[in-house]
Design a protein around this nucleic acid. Sequence first.
DNA 1: AAGAACACCAACCGCTGCATA
DNA 2: TTATGCAGCGGTTGGTGTTCT
Length: 459
Amino acid sequence: MTRAKSESGREMPGPDQADLASRDDDSARESPRRRAGPQLKKGPWTPAEDAILEAYVKKHGVQNWNVVQKDTGLLRCGKSCRLRWANHLRPDLKKGTFTKEEENLIIKLHSKMGNKWARMAARLPGRTDNEIKNYWNTRIKKCQRTSTPIYPAEICLQASNEEQHESTDFSFSEKLANDLLHGNGLYDPSSTWGDFIDDQEALSYAPQLPDVSLSNLPGLYFESKNYGFMDQVNQAEILKESEISFPWLNAAINGTFDGSHAFSNGNFSTSRPMTGSWKMELPSFQFAGSDPNNWSTYSRTCAAQGANFGDPCMRSSAAMASAKFEHMCMIPGNSGQLEEPLPEAHAVSSAENQQLSVGSSSASTGSPCDAMVETSELHFLERDPNLYALVNSCSPASPLCQASPDELPCSDFSSAASPVFVSDEPTIPEYDKGFLLPHPEDSRADAFSHWNAMPPIFQ
DNA sequence: AAGAACACCAACCGCTGCATA
DNA sequence: TTATGCAGCGGTTGGTGTTCT
C-alpha cells in the first residue's frame, strides 16, 4: 500500500486509498455537484482544522455536517467532521484513562448490552463510543492472552444482583408481560413460539434482554490462544442476523454456542456451509473453551438464572435453554452440538402420547404469559424434536432431572460412557463438530430433512 | 541498546435506519 | 412507492508510544 506523509508527519493514505474511498457508498450516492468538488483530505486532523471546525460548530451548532464542510472550506467530508467533533472537540469530553469505576461500569454494561458502544457511551458521561470500544478491544486481547475472565465474577455477580432489584429499561420480560396484559396483539394463544420469534415487534425487544446474558456467568474463560477472538465472533455471528438476539437462549436452542468449537479440539471449521447470512450479537458471552465442565456449569447456571426470573416466560425459556444444554451433555458421544436426528423420532412419538412436562421449569401460574409459554413451547418443541424429547425427559419425574448436578455425566460427555440418555436408535455420526448443520457429505437424507423442516430462524 | 510485543488511540470503512423529496 | 441524503453505529486498520526480553 502506498502511503504519503501528511503535514503532521503521520502517514497518510496514498492515492490508491483515496480512490478506494471514493468508491464507498456514501461517495457513490453523492450528487454530481458534490462529486465534482475538491478532493477530500484524509488522515489525522491538524490543529488548524480543529480550530476551524470548533469555531464553526460553536457558532452554528451541530446541524448538517456536509454543510459544515462546504461552509468552512475544510477538505473533510461531513462524516469526518462529525467524528472529529464527537470524539475530540466536544467540550463535554472527559479526557484521560478510564477510572476503575468507569471500567467496572463498562464491564457491567457490556455484559448487559454486548457491543452497543453508543448505548454504553450514553451511560458514561464524557466518554465516546470509540473510546469504550477501544478499551474493550484492548481488554479482550489482554484477557485472551492471559486466559483471564473477561467478566470478573464479582462484577458479574454485582450486575446480576442489581438487575434483580432494579427495573431497568432492559427488562424484556417486564415489557413482554406488560404487552401481553395490555393486549397489544403480541400475545396470541394460537401463536407458536416460532411465530413469536418471527414477530419483528417482539424481536425488537430482544436487544433489551441482557438480563439473562451469559456474560453474567462467572468463571468463563478464554481457554486458549488457539481460539482467536474473531473465531468466536465468526461463530457468534451465525445467529445474529436471524435477529433473534436471544444469545443465550438461541444459542442453547441451536446448540451452537459460540463455541461449537469448544467441542472440536479448538479447530473450528468455517468451511461448513452456513445458509443465509447469520450473525449474532457477540459479546455478552465468551464461552469456555474446551472444558466440558464449563458447559455443565453454564447449563446449571442458566437454569438457576431462569429460576430467578420473575416472569414465567423467562423462567421457562431459561429452563429450556438449560435443559437443552444438559441434553447436549448427556447424550452419549455427543460432541456438544445438537446431533441432528438423534433419538428424536422415537422420543417424539412417545412424547406425543404424554403430557408435555414443561411445568417443571416454567412453574405455571395461570397468567396469560404462562398460557403463551405453554402453548408456544409446545409448538416450538414440535418443531424441535430434540427439545421435545428433551423436555419430556426432563419432567420432574425424570431421573435425568432428579440427578444432582454432580451426578450428571457432563464432565465427560465426549465419551460414550455413562449413557444416561437411553435410546434404541443408532448413534449418529459426528459429521461436524464445528457446527450444527449436517455435513453435506452425510448421505443420510434425514440429516437434512430435520434441518430443512426447521423454521428459517433456526437455519 | 535493539528489536519484539503490547497498549493505546485516531481514523476510516461499510452498513443501516430514518427523513424527505 | 422509490430514490436519495444524512446521521449514526460498529468493525477494522494502522500509526505511535511504551514496556518487555
